[in-house]
Design a protein around this nucleic acid. Sequence first.
RNA 1: GGCAGGUUGCCCGAGCGGCCAAUGGGAACGGACUGUAAAUCCGUCGGUGUAUACCUACGAAGGUUCGAAUCCUUCACCUGCCA
Length: 423
Amino acid sequence: MSPDPTLLDDLEWRGLIAHSTDLDALREALGERSVRFYVGFDPTAPSLHLGNLVQILTARRLQDAGHTPYALVGGATGMIGDPRDSGERILNSLDTVKEWVERVRHQIEPFLSFDGANAATMVNNYDWTASLSTIDFLRDIGKHFPVNRMLARDVVKSRLEAGISYTEFSYVLLQSMDFLNLYRDHGVTMQFGGSDQWGNLTGGVELIRRSDGGKAHAFATPLIAKADGTKYGKTEGGALWLDPEMMSPYSFFQFWLNVEDEKVGELLRIFTFFGREEIEELEAQHREKPFLRLGQKALAEHVTSLVHGAEETERIKAAAAALFGGGELSGLGADTLCAALREAGSVTVDSAEGLPSVVDLLVQTGLSKSKGDARRTIGEGGAYLNNTRIDDPDQVPSAADLIGGAWLVLRRGKKNFAGVEVT
RNA sequence: GGCAGGUUGCCCGAGCGGCCAAUGGGAACGGACUGUAAAUCCGUCGGUGUAUACCUACGAAGGUUCGAAUCCUUCACCUGCCA
């Protein structure tokens, strides 16, 4: 199978290449034959997140263009920990890492194709690292790493004051060894990763050259940050997880829908499979009438479909349309409302002993984290029952408030909805 | 192994016997303005039906004291210097 020669241009246009080894050599390699490449994911949490999605989708783009993916989960590297600026990591137990490896593996699989001439392969670096002897490791791998060069790496430099363990310092050797092993055993000649991985990526390229005299390539994708340069991921109280248990698909969709104007074009390029013309058209429309938020809508719909499926996305869109419609809630059919609130999040309450107060309901739905917080929100004028501002914290909903005889709609602020089903 | 320093709320970081639920910054949250955008301004930011109160919290466990985030002891972890 001959690869798509325009791939690299497309990746560049999308801004997916933040750094790379010799770009011309890379272009030549990718344009002429089907390249075997790898991308790794360390199990540092039970779920992958937004940043990892960039890698997953990039892997998919490469596969679609005719190249062969090796998706690596870091059963070994996850035991060690990649150094980061914020300081030494707490080591996780083997059992925890093993469990997370499985979860991460299942999150990646749906995005790649495991059939055909360039079928993907899942690998785990635990398989070739766990049994490695220290002597072999130090002689065969360690010998190729000058410590002076390792010390010059930015992450390491930034940690020299605060301290860095030998464990984390050695991380780059393990990841480089992964590349070497995949190069030797599977003919893998390219690796990519997030730009924070750049040092680890080049470490592997260099090891292959020093150890086997081989030529390998690497590139890094950009870090995804907000328009002001700060990190995404602390929205609505948590990171942007791909696991629906850890972040509801509804919230996931809402995140994309609320992206700043300045970021729409960039995110469309990175996170969607829309073509160049399609995206440029969307950007043009967006520039002209930003208040329509067509870009955000397309982005939210596309990415949510990729991660959570088209059906779920339709349900979320219907839910958001109902809740944000601005019209009278009682005008909505009970079925519509019920479905919408289930998407947005809802709790069930037994009315046998009378309805709880609005304060209790805010807490039960999770809109407020404590009664004090709920009272505060009400005091600030930020709490609504059925789209009417609540001003008395002691208010108790009455039977007349029940929409369709069973539902209450609570809202905190402008866009946090939750339903209460009364039985 | 020895000596010295550190561990504070979501994060960073002050406090060093009572005036400490703990200064300040960031993040976050609510309001106003809007387009479920950004910027700006205002407000909030441990819990409790609101209390000169009680509970929980300043790495963990004990202790001294009328009173401890602050002093002492032991333990864990981190850092530096010396072996």
